[in-house]
Structure formats: C-alpha cells, structure tokens
Design a protein around this nucleic acid. Structure first.
Length: 252
DNA sequence: GTTCTAGAAC
DNA sequence: GTTCTAGAAC
C-alpha cells in the first residue's frame, strides 16, 4: 500500500525540493499542493508538515478521525491553521476564475469522512466537479457537497465549538462508507442519473448555465453602477445629502 | 489513490 | 456490438 503514503511523503519532503508543478505554497507548518488527479477545475490540498510542532504526537494528524478523537484544543488549532491556508488558496482560485472565466463559483473546503490516503489533507475544490479524472460513483459522491461524505471544515469547527463531547466528532467509517454507494443525483438540481457519463454531461450543462447567469448578472450590476454614477453627479448638482446619494448608488 | 478488465447494462 | 461499472491488484 505504498500509494497510501504518497501525501505523508510530501509532508516530510523539504518544500524547496518539491516540483513547482505540484507545490503552490508552503509555510512553517503547512504545504499547499495540487491534487495529482484533480476532481474539478480547481482542486488543491492543504497538508500539515512533518515533523509537526502543531500537535504533541504526530499520529494525531494521520487522519481527521484521529485528530478529532484526541485533544480538542489541539484539534481546533490544527484545523484553524489548515483553514487559514485553505482561505488563501480559495482567494487565489476565485481570482483565477474571474480572470479566466469572467465569473466566480463556489469553492468547497473540507475533508473526506473516510480518506483513501494517510496523513490528514484538507481539500479546496471548486464545485463544478468537471474533470476527466472524475470517473466513477465513488469519486462523485465523495465530493458531492450535500451528501455528507464530504465534511465541510466549517461544520467540523462548529462541532468543536458547540461542545468537545459532540457525538459528531466521533467519525464512524461504517456510518459514512455507505454514502459512497448512493444513487447518482445532481447536487444542484437533484435530478437522478443511472450512469456516470450522463451525469457528467449534465454537470457541464449546469456549469455553463451558471456561467451564463453570472456573466449576465455581472453586466447588469456594472450597468447599475454606471447609472448610479450619473445619479450621483445629478444629486451633487442638486446639493442633496450624502445619505440620499449613497442610496442612489445602491440602486434603491 | 489508480489501472485493468470481465461481464453486466444498454 | 459497444458502453459502462465494479472489484482485484501477491
């Protein structure tokens, strides 16, 4: 099972020796890498580096399950450090989306409930799920954002904050694994699909539809902003108060 | 995690 | 006949 150790090896490798094609960024305690088989247009992984000053025992960061079964303050700290890097990656992704596609769409940040690879890794993945490497039901269901197998970081943080004894902090594989076998359905519109190729066609249609709407909406907002600018000039000439000028700019 | 492929589904 | 899934990989 050497493939299962691939991420842990990255975590132990000096960042300046990792290929620039793989490594996006590194900090004292984390690295951000590209997923070797991305399952969406944007798909990065945040890993804590090893050896780690983040936890008292390195085995705590072998998985989310291990992390959450140990000291809750340490767990919260690790998740906050990983989450901060995930937000940096997300900002880069949103900027690239705008530049390359003229609009921004959802970026999800979270963990697989039952990971295939050792060493805890936080996924930062765009919600299109358009990729030639997304091939089967397990791939799709593991990133389907409302199914439950993909555990959003924000949810884990709220479980930890709401109470250190929250039962949801006990990640039970037997509870999550069956979710991967769930019948295929679009996470956006809930339409059912018998087989993957049709679902993949549909996901592409959904993304194109979202793009059309977003680009149209962006244009509408820009137009409204330009109109607001004219109104502000007019208002200035009439010497009306700042509050009224502001409300005109908001399009109210 | 992927690749490969037998045989099920179309 | 071809497409697609799902389980083995020593």
């Amino acid at each position: 099972m050497s493939w299962a150790k691939a991420l842990e090896i990255y975590a132990r490798t000096a960042p300046d020796t990792i290929s620039k094609d793989v490594l996006l960024r590194f900090m004292d305690d984390t690295i951000t890498i590209r997923d070797a088989y991305r399952k969406a247009m944007y798909h990065y992984l945040i890993l804590p580096r090893l050896p780690s000053s983040l936890v008292s025992n390195p085995s705590q960061i072998s998985s989310l399950k291990c992390l959450l079964s140990g000291d809750k303050e340490e767990a919260l700290h690790v998740l906050q450090v990983l989450g901060k890097e995930a937000e940096v990656a997300k900002t880069d992704i949103l900027e690239d989306m705008q530049k390359k596609h003229g609009f921004q769409w959802t970026v999800n940040i979270g963990f697989h409930a039952v990971p295939s690879m050792e060493h805890i890794h936080l996924h930062v993945v765009s919600s299109d799920l358009l990729s030639s490497a997304l091939k089967n039901k397990k791939h799709y269901n593991s990133f389907s954002p409302k199914l439950g197998f993909f555990i959003h970081l924000s949810d884990v943080l709220s479980w930890l904050t709401e109470g250190a004894s929250d039962s949801r902090l006990n990640i039970n594989s037997a509870k999550y694994e069956p979710l991967l076998k769930t019948d295929l359905s679009c996470f956006k519109c809930d339409e059912s699909f018998k087989r993957m190729p049709r679902l993949k066609e549909h996901l592409e249609d959904e993304w194109k539809k979202e793009k059309r709407h977003a680009v149209k909406e962006n244009a509408r907002k820009r137009q409204r902003g330009a109109d607001g600018g004219e109104d502000m000039e007019r208002a200035a000439k009439k010497h009306i108060g700042e509050k009224e000028v502001a409300s005109l700019a908001d399009g109210q």
